[in-house]
Design a protein around this nucleic acid. Structure first.
Length: 298
DNA sequence: TCGCGCAAAGCAC
DNA sequence: GTGCTTTGCGCGA
């Protein structure tokens, strides 16, 4: 396993993967989740999602860098189980002592700071936020940031209330903060987060974790789960020193404001079941499949 | 009270 | 035996 080696971006990943393909990807994952028992062929999947076989194949290659067969594997139920069986790579000493630096195990190279409990209790009073919407590889994306870094990333789905719901869900966490709309800024943040070519240790992504002490401890632990890997709620609970608190960990993971950047999609049940995802299980599968494509270009 | 859990126990193939 | 559901326990907000 070469988990710590830099991931060589495929040509298609020099920039953000094409947002337009996500709609088809999403239908494909939904179809597979429904029909996986019957092991559908590519032809049947194409028919099920209403796209020509060639177009489906081209879209999967553009979006995930995977052949249809590899993509189907990466989003089936057993995928998470396989990831768990592989186990996490051991931390090497250089990383363990470098805790103050960017979180190097996470390929996004995130540099995080936590907001003080006092500031959190004030429900964002005095906090100046900017926010906006932009298209991304997992659909329409909401970004929220402060001058210190990215504070929120979420998704807007038409069938779940669209932009208004996504925004209320996010800004409701800091009801007393001021928020100013800036779609151009959001487009920059979204492009930065979802372009693997820009995940560089010398230019870490700055993020701000705003939450309770327990939540921030959970989120920081999630940053140590490497790209394309998976870990369990109970093991996260053990690692933050609260071995009985796996359910509380689940709740904290579910309150993660920074979807994808704080990789809550890499936490699954001990059995390998995906259990849940704030922005829909389909999207969790999509993220795991996309990451699989980054690690195993074919 | 609730929730993106867990493990044991019960049940059905 | 495997796989699924139910039950009781557990935690922090």
């Amino acid at each position: 396993m070469t988990l710590h080696a830099p991931i060589a971006p495929r040509p298609a990943f020099e920039e953000v993967p094409p947002p337009g393909d996500y709609a088809l990807v999403r239908r494909t994952i939904e179809f597979i989740s429904r029909e996986y028992r019957s092991q559908p062929s590519l032809c049947e999947v194409a028919e099920g999602v209403g796209a020509p076989e060639a177009e489906l194949e081209a879209a999967l290659r553009r979006w995930a860098g995977l052949s249809p067969k590899a993509f189907l594997q990466a989003v089936t139920l057993d995928h998470a189980r396989r990831l768990l069986a592989e186990g996490l790579p051991l931390l090497d000493a250089a990383i363990e002592v470098g805790l103050s630096g960017p979180s190097r195990l996470h390929d996004l190279f995130v540099k995080h700071e936590a907001m003080s409990p006092g500031a959190h209790k004030a429900k964002g009073e005095g906090l100046a936020l900017r926010y906006g919407f932009a298209d991304g590889p997992f659909g329409r994306t909401l970004a929220v940031w402060t001058e210190r870094g990215l504070a929120g990333l979420a998704f807007s789905d038409e069938e779940r209330g669209g932009d208004a719901h996504a925004l209320a869900d996010m800004l409701g966490r800091w009801p007393k903060a001021q928020a100013e709309r800036d779609d151009a800024g959001a487009a920059d943040h979204v492009a930065r987060v979802f372009s693997p070519a820009r995940w560089r240790g010398d230019q870490p992504l700055r993020i701000v974790l705003i939450g309770t002490d327990f939540e921030v401890r959970v989120w920081q632990r999630l940053l140590d789960i490497p790209l394309g890997c998976a870990d369990t709620y109970s093991s996260v609970a053990r690692d933050i020193g609260a071995p009985q608190a796996s359910r509380a960990v689940g709740a904290a993971v579910g309150r993660n404001p920074l979807s994808f950047v704080v990789p809550c999609h890499r936490v699954v049940g001990k059995s390998g079941a995906l259990t849940g995802y704030h922005w829909g299980l389909t999207r969790k599968r999509a993220m795991l499949g996309w990451e699989f494509g980054l690690r195993h270009p074919d």
